[in-house]
């Protein structure tokens, strides 16, 4: 039957361009080349050396903080947006649109706004005789960049689940005597958990792996795990160690997704 063979080109493609590359990272990750290539966990161990391990912890920490800030900003916003049922398309449009401008340029534009000496914000502050702020090159700048870039990924899934809550369910809660607060805690919040989980995944994952944001807004002074991986491949050409670091990163992501899936009562998380 023809239709059974339709997926064959794709399956071949996926084996060559998805499975084999991952297998290669795995193989490079657990081998070293000292004259001859041999199996060794040396590089995996090296990833836990203080210099590298600190960068790893830093990445987790920054990604966590950014995710929490995104959640705090996005949830109330999504609630407000849900009230405007008739304006659905327009409202979403407004909050998704920024993603269609090149993200490097958008991130770079923050430099123009926040630079210590010539930045737009400090020029205004100086004009008003207020103290200026120094943020570029600090961890705060990196977290700002993460929140800025990934906030829409938190807004959308939460808005999606909230807007799908049946209005009659909310009415029923009122009729049964629930106060506004009870209704939120007992009805809206539990129903929105799948959206929150998707949002957390979609913010935390790119945040923990980014190497561009620290480079641009951290002035290259603060290294995250993404930067270390990039350096191994682009500067020091130590693919073996780069692959080991990638493996460690993938394990961390798998663990965090596992934890998130446990929290999700519906165990689907498919609010996309």
């Amino acid at each position: 039957m023809l239709r059974k063979w339709l997926a064959t080109p794709y399956i071949l493609w996926a084996i060559i361009f998805t499975i084999i590359p991952l297998a290669m990272i795995l193989i490079y990750g657990v081998t070293i080349d000292d004259g001859g290539i041999r199996f060794s966990l040396e590089n995996i161990m090296k990833a836990f050396d203080p210099i590298y391990f600190k960068a790893l912890l830093r990445s987790i920490y920054y990604a966590l903080i950014s995710t929490i800030i995104c959640l705090i900003i996005a949830y109330p916003l999504a609630l407000i947006l849900t009230e405007k049922r008739n304006a659905k398309v327009t409202v979403i449009f407004i909050f998704v649109l920024p993603m269609w401008m090149n993200f490097l340029l958008r991130t770079y534009a923050w430099l123009t706004i926040l630079e210590t000496n010539n930045g737009f914000l400090n020029t205004v502050l100086r004009f008003l005789h207020l103290p200026t702020i120094q943020i570029i090159g600090t961890p705060n700048a990196i977290i700002l960049g993460m929140v800025y870039n990934f906030l829409p990924f938190m807004i959308l899934p939460i808005y999606n689940v909230l807007s799908k809550i049946d209005p009659y369910v909310l009415e029923a809660a009122f009729d049964l005597g629930a106060s506004k607060l009870t209704r939120f805690v007992k009805v809206i919040l539990p129903l929105s958990i799948p959206g929150v989980i998707s949002g957390i995944t979609m913010v935390f994952m790119p945040a923990i792996t980014t190497f561009v944001i620290p480079k641009l807004l951290g002035s290259g002074k603060i290294n995250l795990i993404g930067n270390l991986i990039e350096q191994q491949f682009v500067q020091s050409y130590n693919w073996y160690f780069g692959a080991s670091l990638s493996l460690v990163l993938m394990v961390i992501i798998l663990i965090s997704m596992g934890i998130l899936n446990r929290v999700d009562p519906s165990r689907e998380g498919g609010a996309l």
């Binding site: 996926a14 590359p21 991952l22 990272i25 994952m205 190497f211 693919w239 990163l249």
Partner: peptide, 27 residues
């Protein structure tokens, strides 16, 4: 099985997809 493979590049961090493909192309 096929769907799990399909979700791999979607869920994998871009940096891992990128270096994996780079290693393959060089190989």
């Amino acid at each position: 099985i096929v769907m799990n493979i399909t979700y791999l590049p979607v869920l994998n961090p871009d940096i891992v997809t990128g270096i994996g493909l780079m290693l393959l192309f060089i190989l």
